[in-house]
Write a protein that binds this DNA or RNA. Structure first.
Lengths: 200, 200
DNA sequence: AGAGATATGTAGTGTTCGCTACAGATGTGA
DNA sequence: TCACATCTGTAGCGAACACTACATATCTCT
């Protein structure tokens, strides 16, 4: 039996375009018409490949987090907890104001509140953010074990904190804050992590 | 000439209901049908009173910020910058997880990203958040002048920082974080402000 | 070459959206 | 009481939404 007509578009390149539309307009604000136009395909191709709109979002999120994880691995490779926080937040200040992408973070812009029928989208995004937070928590736990962080410090709380600041910065970026403003926030935020660092 | 038939519903009570719907579903996620049902009126009454959906949102935002400003005045009345930050962020941890309201903050949940035709909604929310940030900045500037904050501290950066943390906490709350988690974030966050406080 | 399988483009489907025309109801002023 | 102004409920407007039926095109396998 035959294998059928092959797909004429590059799925990953199309996903990159879809990712940008979701990033800029959010899940509910992005329309199928906008998505198909950006992806350079017609609706039937979209549905054959990704199932439905939510399936397309999940595929875009997968691609986004995959690219982001490469960077996160560099972040947690920093020698101290303070430098981890600094690399993470300063990097976010730059990335979220990179003119090559929509401002902010897809994991925030994607949809914080949604209407009936899409209630699980915000939780889908939260689950992806939780992965990053877990990575930070593990790294901070190691820092505590190594004596880099105070014995009284709470790695989970620190990770939650850094994650919260990152989200706040994303919202600021999407509503017009410039790179310098975000860097100032990151600079202040790092001081809380420094306060949990052991004296040297 | 006559004054016409008087309105049969309480506009402020109706606004409270609309506020809750926008808070829970966001601007675009909230439908006129949901809003009118929650408000206990029919569409023509809504449009006669508030103009259109965006006018209703602005009226709801006005009411939200009016209530919130009462609390903000208590926050900035704290004696030191550190205590201002602590009152603000700890208070937010409690308010954003108050079961009497939808989780999170209307100024975030209302709409971070919107579709074509509602692009100005995110900026409308950002403008209201900026008012709070300005209030914090003025308070921190006073703290610096009083010697409560270090001479090298940047009141504007500190205010932006506290505001960013508050936004991040709002997103966390709306996606399921409980009160204890938010308090941990607030606790860590305050330490950055403490690091900018003058020794005593 | 022919049969089966999958992709594509056109052109829609039914539903829901924000919003409103209209008629009747209820008030004020002369 | 009557003219006028405003509100209210019913009912439905055009537009946009996510999604798909269908005919056609392009592949693989025999």
């Amino acid at each position: 039996m035959g294998m059928g007509r092959p797909r004429e578009f590059d799925a990953e390149a199309a996903l990159d375009q879809a990712m940008e539309v979701f990033w800029r307009h959010g899940y509910e604000g992005a329309t199928i018409a906008q998505l198909t136009e950006a992806m350079g395909i017609n609706p039937p191709s979209l549905y054959a490949c990704f199932g439905n709109k939510e399936g397309l979002l999940k595929a875009a999120l997968d691609r986004y987090t995959k690219l982001r994880n490469v960077w996160m691995n560099e972040v947690v490779a920093a020698p101290t907890a303070r430098e981890v926080a600094e690399r993470m937040l300063m990097g976010i200040a730059d990335k979220q104001t990179d003119p090559a992408n929509p401002p902010g973070c897809l994991l925030v812009q994607g949809g914080i509140a949604c209407g009936s029928g899409s209630e699980n989208v915000p939780f889908e995004l939260a689950a992806r953010r939780a992965e990053n937070e877990a990575q930070l928590r593990d790294r901070f736990a190691r820092a505590k074990a190594e004596g880099d962080l105070k014995p009284t410090s709470d790695p989970a709380a620190l990770a939650r904190y850094v994650s919260a600041v990152a989200v706040g910065m994303g919202v600021m970026a999407s509503s017009g804050s410039d790179r310098e403003a975000l860097r100032q926030v990151a600079d202040v935020a790092v001081q809380a992590v420094e306060a949990q660092s052991a004296r040297d």
